[in-house]
Design a protein around this nucleic acid. Structure first.
Lengths: 235, 235
DNA sequence: CTGGACTAAAATATCGATATTTGTTGACGC
DNA sequence: GCGTCAACAAATATCGATATTTTAGTCCAG
């Protein structure tokens, strides 16, 4: 297992953290992904120190980790800032993500066993259960991430899983920044059902096709929203 | 540009660092990749502090960054240690790396222009110039990395480039750990020439085939060496 | 012996303070 | 005016010291 426990929660939320650094990492990570911390914003240590009520060391450590993740950019002697977004970067991300997840999904379908199937069923059930009524946003987000990861869980490659999670989060940031409601725009729930069915039926090509289409559809919407963001978002 | 300047040198070596953190990161990174710091060993802050003559903060920041890179593992309240290696992890790495580089190479060949070609020619020349006589190891390593990256440089995807570099380094660690001499075992120089020729001739399929074969060959040797490492390396 | 609980030592994680660097403002000379 | 440079202010990077947690060792009860 290459990954470190600094990474955000995978399944159940509301864990307790064993270090200030982990907690601070999770919080900043969440704030960047959710768009609360906007692209390009300067991340002043003193400010974050106060915001999260913690010392400078955990803040700097969390930011260092985030920098390697790609969500934050560091420049020596000039501190940290939230990574910029752009249409080009997004295209790049989407394409690489599709490639990674396709591979992971194919492997998972060929290798996955009973336990993997049950994980998908469970994740699908949870996701379908929580409507996106306001207040449940966070919970829906968590279940949505868990669902998508459950599909790949049995791929047998910790590297592919790590990358899938990382890119999921990065893509998610774009979605939030575009204020794209996701669930309201299309029949996302239906798409999830379809994907889950295809996967569980071991219909590999169909599953991959649906998954990539799922991402591409969102991508197309994001692409449009990004243009607006680029034009009026300067300020 | 998502990457941060903490990453190790890409082209010319012997740069000066603008912060203790960068320098410490580069040094630890080098020591892990070169195998001087062996898999599983505990990275005690105090010890590193002394070794690199630097405070605790830069050390911890560098380690946090390395943890996200995957070269180091962190466990809350238990500090850092060098990431373990295993045959399985290596297979995983090799497979993902081939996929990533294949994509990057195809894109580079289709998109690359005059400048990209010149970069390859230059890198090939430099690599061929420095024989692997003892003492030149470091220089050869640098040119070798630069050569492989020059092939992909024009792929147009900063993400693919970032991943390629990361996986190159990780693969390189396995090579060093296996004490595989690389250059002596096969006609590696010839392979590099062949690859460069195919790439410059824009013979995409051949280039990809050669590159993947190049990695796979090394992989096969590493696989053997790894078994030995696993059996007698316990100590 | 064996195992659990307590103690001492080591190492981590964290804070508060300081030195260095960068950014900014405004006076001065051209 | 306009660029330049110096002093000041802000922020970063870094250190040294402290609190907390883990680890190792030891002693006794069973």
């Amino acid at each position: 297992m290459i990954t470190t426990d600094l990474h955000p929660v995978d399944e159940e939320g509301a864990q307790e953290f064993r270090s200030r650094t982990s907690e601070t990492y999770a919080r900043i990570h969440g704030d960047v992904v959710s768009g609360k911390l906007k692209p390009g914003v300067k991340l002043k240590i003193e400010q974050l120190r106060e915001e999260y009520d913690v010392g400078a060391t955990p803040v700097r450590e969390a930011l260092s980790f985030l920098a390697a993740d790609g969500l934050v950019v560091r420049e020596d002697q000039k501190g940290f800032r939230v990574a910029e977004v752009s249409a080009d970067e997004f295209e790049d991300l989407l394409a690489v993500r599709c490639m990674i997840e396709e591979r992971a999904l194919r492997l998972a379908i060929s290798r996955g066993g009973r336990k993997w199937e049950e994980g998908i069923v469970l994740a699908r059930f949870r996701l379908s259960g929580v409507g996106r009524i306001e207040g449940n946003e966070a919970e829906w987000e968590r279940h949505h991430r868990a669902f998508h990861m459950s599909l790949l869980a049995a791929c047998g490659s910790s590297l592919l899983l790590r990358l899938s999670k990382q890119f999921y989060d990065e893509n998610n940031r774009y979605r939030h920044l575009s204020r794209l409601n996701h669930a309201t725009t299309r029949d996302v729930r239906g798409e999830h059902e379809e994907i889950a069915e295809a996967v569980l039926a071991r219909d590999t090509d169909r599953a991959v096709g649906l998954l990539v289409e799922h991402y591409t559809k969102t991508g197309n919407l994001l692409r449009i929203a990004l243009k607006d963001l680029a034009t009026d978002g300067h300020g």
